[in-house]
């Protein structure tokens, strides 16, 4: 099998075992630029592992991952880290903001990791915080803002490097409906405006409804549900 034509990120026949458990057992995936793909499935089905493999955080035991014509599985850990810094963005369930940095410093962090100057990075960070309507929190620490606000800061952080692919792992998992909707709306709007692809891991249908297409993972196997036309 080869990558579907025009896909930005694709994976064929991924397998990954953690000890005796097969987290992935022949999963496939592909995403186009500007596309939002929901990865759904029950807990423990291997959704997160699929995301970690696709993002080059965890190398799969076997299978091929292709990003923009390059084979991810053949890259070294350092190269994959560099790729994550430059081309990928991440949002996690509980924000995972660095508690001692202020919100704007948190948002600027990925730029700083890429070597940007502090002032410049924070200026860019602030424009993203404006887009996510959290610019008034810039000087606060993550501990001083609400969950929804924190998650929006986290989204701003994931988008600040203008990534080509945004990985979101249960981005609304810790939020109520209203905040969750708002975060999803801002996230997908922002991603669409930059033509970024979004890999959205969720078990919530209303969150998945923000996607263009969904993939179901069950027992480590993925099933691409082509929209019925």
């Amino acid at each position: 099998m080869t990558a579907p034509a025009g896909s930005l990120l694709s994976a064929q026949d991924l397998r990954k075992a953690y000890g005796p458990t097969n987290a992935l057992d022949g999963a496939h995936f592909s995403i186009h630029p500007g596309e939002v793909v929901a990865v759904m499935g029950p807990s423990g089905s291997g959704k997160s592992t699929l995301l970690h493999c696709l993002a080059g955080i965890v190398p799969p035991d076997s299978g091929v991952i292709t990003y923009n014509g390059r084979e991810l599985s053949a890259m070294s850990d350092g190269e994959r880290s560099a790729l994550r810094r430059s081309d990928f963005g991440f949002v996690f369930q509980f924000g995972q903001l660095v508690p001692e940095l202020s919100c704007v410093e948190n948002v600027a962090l990925p730029l700083r990791l890429n070597g940007a100057k502090r002032k410049e990075a924070e200026r860019t960070a602030l424009t993203w915080m404006e887009r996510l309507e959290v610019d008034d929190l810039a000087k606060k620490r993550p501990g001083e803002v609400s969950g929804g606000q924190g998650q929006r800061v986290a989204v701003a952080r994931s988008l600040v490097t203008s990534p080509r692919v945004l990985f979101a792992d249960e981005p609304t998992g810790a939020l109520d409906s209203l905040n969750g909707e708002r975060v999803m709306q801002l996230l997908t709007d922002a991603a669409r405006s930059t033509n970024a692809a979004v890999v959205l891991v969720t078990h919530e249908a209303r969150v998945a409804a923000y996607s263009d297409r969904e993939i179901v993972v069950r027992d480590g196997k993925s099933r691409d549900m082509e929209p019925v036309l």
């Binding site: 249908a205 998945a208 263009d212 969904e214 929209p227 019925v228």
Partner: peptide, 16 residues
Amino acid sequence: LDTQRAEHLRMMRMLT
């Protein structure tokens, strides 16, 4: 069930 879910999601996407 998967087919049905896809159909449901299609509807939900429209509504969203």
